[in-house]
């Protein structure tokens, strides 16, 4: 699974992109967040305020209930501020 982080999530986690293989029990984006948050202090800080984190699965906005699969691209980022 390809995971992308943007803006302050990227800074707190220390990378913008990684390939990971979460356990089979991780079936939704919300479960992925909960699992990622256990991987280290940077992850825990980045995902501390879950409401501040937006989710995209395969470049489409999703939420904590969105299902995820092995070959998906899952992105986490703060609310957008372009324009």
């Amino acid at each position: 699974m390809k995971i992308l982080y943007f803006a302050w999530l990227r800074q707190k986690i220390g990378t913008g992109e990684e390939q990971i293989d979460p356990p089979e029990s991780v079936a939704t984006a919300g479960q992925l967040i909960d699992w990622l948050a256990t991987r280290g202090p940077g992850y825990a800080t980045a995902f501390k305020d879950a409401r501040a984190v937006k989710i995209a699965v395969n470049q489409t906005f999703g939420d904590r209930e969105t299902p995820i699969a092995a070959n998906d691209e899952v992105a986490f980022f703060p609310p957008v501020t372009g324009g």
Binding site: F6, G82, G83
Partner: peptide
């Protein structure tokens, strides 16, 4: 511009 500001993934 209203939709771009809330839906396009840019960060400043």
């Amino acid at each position: 511009i209203d939709w771009l500001k809330t839906k396009a993934p840019f960060w400043k």
